[in-house]
Nucleic acid binder design. Structure first.
Lengths: 215, 215
DNA sequence: TGCCCGATGTTGACCGCATGAACATTCCAG
DNA sequence: CTGGAATGTTCATGCGGTCAACATCGGGCA
């Protein structure tokens, strides 16, 4: 990175990326609120205002980190699903995939609480950042959710394809894993001993799967 | 300042409460991050540092707001449950109660997003507040959760009292409503049209209830 | 080739916020 | 009545976000 030896260039050459890396590191350490423009600049060895040449301000930096975090989350889910052994019965396979994706989701949250929180932070116009976008702007789609939804659809089609599979099933499942993650990471279920935590995770997974079948 | 008419007391007389009210109002307007010590003091018409005579700092003020918000949340759930008509079949009644409590939960979140978020905020030692308590200190118990858990236990006992009712069922259900609430209030499901929102809520409720029966 | 402009950094300044220290004003118990 | 405790106030420090003005660098155009 940034030529430690020699070329002490006035122009950094890759400041934007360097700042993003620093910001991601900060988020990893302490979540979105730890993503501080000045600190990121400090770590990169640049003056605070230099960041404004590459970002609108803290808000945009944070949103960039969020994008990164969401990608990592989805990757974690896919890895978990890939590790899962297949099954002859397509229904069983689908069920396993759903469960694996969910475990990957919660696993990421538990192992990377800071990044996980950053993945779902909302830059609020309240403070000094975010002038509140006038265009409602379509959400860029969250891969984690897409993965989950698709797996649930497969599950629905494969096995007990009850005719009226509710379209909102994906959101319901997402709610469960998301809520679980937050309670474990941030909320009242943090400091739960590992064993008990796993019990809660498995129970929730069971609820999701049974719910997906029943709906 | 204070008391424009007459009793211009140097001593406010009830500053603590006044500050709490102001802080709650702030949280109602813009969530926990909007709870700013200085602003609360300003609204009460007192100097910023006066607050320190009644609170350790912003952290404690926020925690006080949180307590208040949690109480409101639980009240909302109980009101919703109270509105629910009874049923002869105890199993059905139990099921209805669970659903009603959940609706009250999500309803509160949607109607009072700021307060709801404040109810689950975590004062982080990162910034300037919270010196990180050396004693892990037992969480003061969250009534919303207790209500839900008890209703689920009743449900389990009443009807299909499957022998192995998992103890974590309460946490699983809580995860679902909590996650749903956050996605709706704060997350990617905010700006969902009301109709679709209700669909998601009902689907999630169905998942919770069916899950409770199945576990 | 050499100069000028645009991109990229830097300084300095302003404002809001959380806090702590020292000082002022009340109130009440002795 | 009076002095200390309780409760407010003022002043000052440090951090973070952001803006405006100024400095550098690098590359394309005359």
């Amino acid at each position: 990175m940034a030529a430690i030896s020699g070329g002490n260039t006035y122009h950094h050459g890759d400041l934007r990326n360097a700042l993003i890396c620093a910001a991601v590191a900060l988020a990893t350490e302490g979540g979105p609120e730890r993503v501080v423009l000045r600190e990121a600049a400090r770590r990169v060895g640049v003056s605070p205002t230099a960041a404004y040449r590459h970002f609108d301000g803290r808000g945009e930096l944070l949103r960039t980190v969020r994008t990164h975090a969401r990608r990592e989350l989805a990757d974690s889910m896919e890895r978990a699903a890939a590790r899962e052994p297949g099954a002859d019965d397509p229904a069983l396979a689908a069920e396993r995939r759903v469960a694996a994706l969910c475990r990957g989701y919660v696993g990421f949250a538990v192992e990377q609480p800071g990044l996980y929180r950053a993945a779902f932070c909302v830059p609020r116009p309240g403070a000094t950042d975010e002038p509140a976008p006038e265009r409602p702007q379509t959400e860029p789609e969250i891969r984690a959710f897409t993965l989950l939804r698709e797996a649930l659809e497969t599950l629905a089609r494969s096995g007990a394809a009850r005719p009226g599979t509710r379209p909102a099933t994906g959101a319901a499942a997402w709610s469960a894993v998301h809520g679980l993650s937050l309670l474990l990471v941030d909320g009242p279920l943090r400091r739960l001993p590992v064993q008990r935590r796993n019990a809660v995770v498995e129970t929730t997974l069971a609820m999701v799967v049974s719910g997906a079948r029943a709906l």
